[in-house]
Design a protein around this nucleic acid. Structure first.
Length: 419
RNA sequence: GUGGGUGUAGCUCAGUAGGUAGAGCACCGGGUUGUGGCCUCGGCGGUCGAGGGUUCAAAUCCCUUCACUCACCCCA
């Protein structure tokens, strides 16, 4: 048997209704908040990700699906979307026509990590990006949008964490201050953290090893090292969130894996997800557009991990399945022939009708009707056709009535609509 | 890439003094004449992850391998 590729998955019919529910709701909110959809390809030049995400990152170093195509170009299945959005923003001169713009995009991303709960090699994201706005209220608005989505989806147990990473002006000073502290923690830090102590010391905040966590409790906070501009920026983000009563937790340990983030950074975390607890994450990336060869335009964005979001919603046990409205139990070939005609007419009237093509007993057809969860069943056999009236059974009240064959579709449609 | 756990019917799982497999759910059908959900009876359905070894005999012991899963790592 040929099976799924490791880390990839099928989204089965029993789940797609929930996916669609999320997609529709999020899309509507994005449009309400002024975002326009941008559709970007799944394949890009490898260099785009190397330059935006950073050559030192794990994503670029060992997680990308990269191959050389026949022309000799190195291509990569996108591991994230922001780089492509920025590329499109620059390539099509969007910055010239509408430097300030809000874009969103959705689709699969690819990262060759070891699969586990909430982590797949093909996973889905909804990305929102805002370009051209330095104002901290843009950051706040984006977070507001994200939390509105969370709220509308009635997602429980999800908490917002925010932090500021400073800017190229003040972050280096923090890193310098962090180093002597870390040198004093040689005993406590795990081997991994010791290795990255010099290369990327801020990442140690992310380590989940208990002793590291403990050792980092007394570490200096980036928030004490922000320059005046960054401090004021962060203050406005917070006061804006307060104003809209968005609860949040300041977490000076919240750092990002991608090099291009500056200032505001945030994540929505849900404990129920296990180790992969980030449902959404984002932040400001003021240097990225320029770094990719565009004008010096700022950007802020977030990504929602749809798979994880769905997992949370599915656990909250809410059904979005679409059940048919009507089943036609037809007895005998003549009745089946008529029923076939009717189901088509019902569907044209937006009534989801089903019937059975096997010549099964009424009992088994009733069973099927019950299993489908229809609210009404039409029962038609030779007897009914001869009498010119078929039986309409209300599956919840068990009441039955006769409906004349001529004009049947209209009468039944009305009955179902008035439910 | 590293570690732990697990791999027996579509699903959830039983099944050790080694003797060629069971349950529940699901599915199909019956319980008198053309009527569902409960009950009841029956049926369908398994190369016991794969390959090799030990043995008269292995789902059960040994080796190898693959897959799934959780965690590390990383991140949405």
């Amino acid at each position: 048997m040929i099976r799924l590729v490791r880390g990839f998955k099928d989204i089965l019919p029993s789940d797609t209704a929930l996916w669609q529910h999320v997609e529709v709701l999020v899309r509507e909110l994005l449009e309400d908040f002024g975002f326009s959809e941008l559709r970007i390809p799944i394949l890009e030049q490898t260099e785009l990700f190397a330059r935006s995400i950073g050559t030192g990152t794990d994503i670029v170093e060992k997680e990308m699906y990269t191959f050389i195509d026949r022309s000799g170009d190195s291509l990569t299945l996108r591991p994230e979307a922001t780089a492509s959005v920025v590329r499109a923003y620059i390539e099509h001169g969007i910055y010239a026509k509408t430097p300030e713009c809000k874009l969103y995009t959705t689709g699969p991303m690819f990262r060759r990590e070891r699969p586990q709960k909430g982590r797949y090699r093909q996973f889905y994201q909804i990305n929102a990006e805002v370009f051209g706005l330095h104002d901290p209220r843009a950051d706040a608005e984006l977070i507001l949008l994200l939390m509105t989505i969370v709220g509308r989806l009635e997602l429980s147990g999800a908490g917002l964490h925010i932090n500021s990473l400073g800017c190229p002006e003040c972050r280096p000073q923090f890193r310098e201050a962090l180093k002597p502290f870390l040198r004093g923690q040689t005993e406590e830090l795990c081997s991994n953290c010791l290795r990255r102590r010099d290369k990327n010391p801020m990442r140690i905040f992310d380590c989940k090893v208990p002793t590291c966590k403990k050792a980092m409790l007394d570490a200096p906070s980036i928030l004490d090292y922000l320059c005046e501009t960054c401090r004021a920026h962060f203050e406005t983000v917070k006061s804006s969130l307060d104003r809209f009563q968005i609860p949040y937790q300041i977490n000076h340990r919240l750092v990002r894996g991608l090099d291009y983030y500056t200032r505001t950074t945030f994540e929505v975390l849900a404990e129920a997800l296990g180790a992969q607890d980030a449902v959404a994450g984002g932040g400001r990336y003021d240097g990225l557009v320029k770094a990719l060869g565009g004008p010096d335009q700022p950007g802020v964005g977030f990504a929602i991990g749809v798979d994880r979001l769905i997992e949370l919603l599915a656990a909250q046990a809410q059904s979005f399945e679409r059940r048919p409205h009507l089943f036609i139990a037809a007895l005998g070939l003549r009745a089946q022939d008529t029923a076939f005609q009717w189901v088509q007419e019902f569907r044209m009237q937006k009534v989801r009708a089903e019937m059975d093509f096997e010549n099964r007993s009424l009992k088994s057809q009733m069973r099927r009707a019950d299993k489908l969860g229809v609210s009404y069943t039409l029962i038609v056999g030779d007897r009914e056709l001869d009498d010119g009236a078929v039986v309409l059974r209300n599956m919840t009240t068990k009441e039955q009535e006769n409906v004349p064959v001529q004009d049947l579709v209209r009468l039944v449609v009305n009955r179902i609509r008035t439910e």
